[in-house]
Design a protein around this nucleic acid. Structure first.
Lengths: 134, 134, 134, 134
DNA sequence: GTGGTCTAGACCACC
DNA sequence: GTGGTCTAGACCACG
């Protein structure tokens, strides 16, 4: 995996990196048990302070996406959904409305949006249906 | 239209309000030429610093969503998409990937996501197809 | 509320403070909507680096115990349980076993432990029953 | 006895193992005079560095839970509570408050907590009352 | 070697 | 004034 930081972005470095890792996991480009680059290593390659990298890893661990083993390194975790159905539904809806709002203001039509979704959705790693949701 | 500030959100007040206005326009709850509440009025009803409200209006005017007519008030603008086809496509894609990433991590299945979209999409005000921007 | 840091403790400063805040909330000594001391203020009174305080506040916000409003300060949040019943049950059990293990090694009897619990339990702020649990 | 290391735990290996041994003793699954697996043996079965196992045994010997007899192996010690009544009480209280704090934040009710305790308490090996320690 | 903690001090955004 | 981000550099614990 390669990550890239855009220093000219108004988005803080740690958020850029965090988002990229989250997306990579969601796309299956990073798989469970896989080892992440070490804090110092990523720090060197991205030319970013080690503390900033460590912060990203710490946050993603708290979210359950990564596991860190002291002395060994940081690893991609097995997915597990710990949230209530209600909360999960609310969050999906909120994200969806944000997306649709943006799409409207960009001037797209309903059909264009739906077809974008059905097309793009194939690039991600989904739970098999039935497992856990509303 | 009613707007609400959620103090428990980590999102700054001005962004919460800006997002709500953008969404209201996208949903057709605010229509072109409609008058917005004055800065002072909104400031009172939301119990928010007038400077903060003014900032929101200013930003939305820059985005082309609102028009300020000095002495008369602030009005919802007619939509106009000024971006190139390429930029619009990129932005939609980026927003979409963000949404899909979140959906994966929330543990939803592909089918659930697609059905949420097709259902929710009806609540927004879309361009009729073909006309899409320019 | 008063917080105290024991520099001679092997527990990191940020964990000491975090635990104290969590316990204060659980005991009702800190109530929802109440304002927390500012980062800089706590930093001065505890003679601890502001970054360390900020870290505590950030983590507690992510846990849902605190809300931070940029420019205004940090506030105690309204409680909300977002986790699955299953996860909640597992965590309670794990904490309980840890406690009981310690109690055994300290040489207490079953009766002494149960009476300690029933007595001590009154000092905390509980959900009314029925609301949400196994 | 079987011990298991959970890689997805943020707890260092040596602490996971130490806790498991302490809990096993408290539950009576490990009894006084019983022989523990050798350092090399445990190292192989858990796929853990021998130094790490040795460290655990050393620490538990210092705590008085284990006895090492050079050339013979490591054995579970006879329990002996050497602490003063005051210290024991303080420690129990501290552990208990920690447990109750967690329970509150998980959203349990008072009744649920008490019933969990009275139920779970039967799985541990308690001192008969009166004799409590010394 | 790995990650975790802490400090000092800078600069920015929010209200 | 508030909190948020980032850097530099130190020291410690883990395996």
């Amino acid at each position: 995996m390669e990550f890239r930081i855009d220093p000219s972005s108004r988005l803080p470095i740690y958020r850029q990196l965090r988002n990229q890792i989250r997306e990579a996991v969601a796309r299956g480009k990073l798989e469970p048990l896989q080892r992440m680059p070490s804090v110092r290593e990523l720090s060197r390659t991205l030319v970013v302070n080690p503390n900033t990298i460590a912060r990203v890893y710490t946050e993603l661990e708290r979210e359950g996406l990564l596991n860190t083993r002291p002395g060994l390194g940081v690893f991609v975790a097995h997915p597990k959904a710990e949230l209530t159905e209600e909360v999960r539904g609310q969050r999906l809806e909120r994200q969806l409305d944000e997306f649709l709002t943006e799409a409207v203001h960009l001037g797209f039509s309903c059909e264009q949006v739906v077809s974008s979704v059905t097309e793009r959705v194939t690039q991600f790693r989904w739970q098999s249906d039935g497992s856990q949701a509303s």
